[in-house]
Amino acid sequence: MDAPEGGQQDESLLVTAHVSDTFRRCQQYALDTGIPADRIFSDPIVSIPLPIYEEADDRVVFGSTRPEAFWHPLAWLPEAQAMPATWLDEDGAPESESDQEWAMRLALELAASGLYDPSRGWVDILALHGLDIATPAVIERITRWLTGAADPTLDAIDLTPYFAATDTLYGRGWAHIRVEGTFFAYRSAAWAVTARTLIEELRTVNVEALRDPDAREVLVTIGAIAATYLDGVPTPDSADDDYPDRLSAIPSTVDLDADGDVSADTIRDADMGLLRILDEIAADYGDAETDLASAEADAIKQLEKITQGAAS
């Protein structure tokens, strides 16, 4: 199997370049790994889909049963990286990272550990242990192991030292601290990218052609992506209705199950309504990408120092 979608060479793991890529990569990752879509985390705050590990017998488990997926670091995450962190606050009440905070922290840790490098891509974990995923013998070996057979090499794979090395070099909990200090900036930038790239895509659509049920799917898809990935955007007090309610209502107005007689006015209104919301969000977060640039540059420099130290 090829590299899972996302995290290609020369690409940051933080904040997607185009939100349609986020949507498409999630779908492709589900096909490649066999993991159900509801067990995959997908959000434009990161450029990659992330598996939601399952808890079983006091351990966490990667959800794929396809041996071809096991060359990738995401198949071997330690529990501390595979799950949102939990802790007790000063009053003893349990707290935990949000899914977005966890995803951002994991992206930072994967880059800092050297398991992902923008200039080289992902580390092949099996190759580090002398196994070639392209050979039928290794595929068969992993298949047996997934069904419960003992395998000393596979049983011994543990990525904990990679992540522990960054804590040693940069300070325990460095990624949590980084997320606490920059989460809102990255989340805002992700919303800005989502709105901006969907506006660009929407403006390429021939509205008149959308009366065709097949072509109408384009508008429905863009609306669904917007409703999914902009669900948490705060609605200004001046707005009449919440952004999530307005976004989720748009696809149903041009329902794909409707006959071809959906009026041109209805389609045009849906198109303009979606564009109006996206324009509002883009305006609200128009400076987010610029504001993030200097912080991201500092973060990259810091992560490069960690990665160089871990490699020496």
Rank of each mutant, 00 (worst) to 15 (best):
D2N: 15
P4T: 09
E5I: 08
G6C: 06
G7C: 07
Q8D: 11
S12R: 11
S12P: 02
V15Y: 08
R24P: 02
C26S: 15
Y29I: 00
T33W: 09
T33G: 06
G34H: 09
I35Q: 10
I48Q: 07
P49D: 02
P51D: 07
R59N: 10
F62G: 04
G63W: 10
T65I: 09
T65N: 10
R66E: 12
P67Q: 12
H72Y: 08
W76P: 08
P84Y: 12
A85T: 13
D89L: 12
D89S: 08
E90V: 13
E90G: 08
A93W: 10
P94D: 04
E95W: 03
S96L: 05
E97Q: 14
S98K: 09
S98I: 06
M104D: 00
E109N: 08
L110P: 00
L110S: 01
L115A: 03
P118M: 09
W122A: 04
V123M: 07
G130F: 14
L131S: 04
D132P: 00
D132L: 10
I133T: 07
I139R: 11
R141F: 08
R144C: 09
R144S: 14
L146G: 04
T147D: 14
T147N: 13
A149F: 03
P152Q: 04
P152M: 07
Y162N: 05
A164T: 14
A165M: 03
G173W: 10
W174G: 00
A175H: 05
E180T: 08
F184P: 02
R187T: 04
A189I: 05
V193M: 08
V193Q: 02
L202E: 10
V205L: 15
V207C: 08
T221L: 11
A224K: 14
T228R: 15
Y229S: 11
D231L: 13
D231K: 13
P236K: 09
P236M: 06
P236Y: 10
D237A: 15
D245H: 09
A249I: 00
A249L: 06
I250P: 03
I250Y: 00
S252W: 07
D257P: 01
D257F: 05
A258I: 04
D259A: 04
G260W: 09
V262R: 02
S263H: 04
S263A: 00
T266S: 07
M272S: 11
G273K: 01
I277P: 06
L278P: 05
A282I: 04
A282H: 15
E289F: 01
E289D: 07
T290A: 15
D291T: 09
L292G: 07
S294R: 12
A295N: 06
D298F: 07
A299M: 12
E304Q: 11
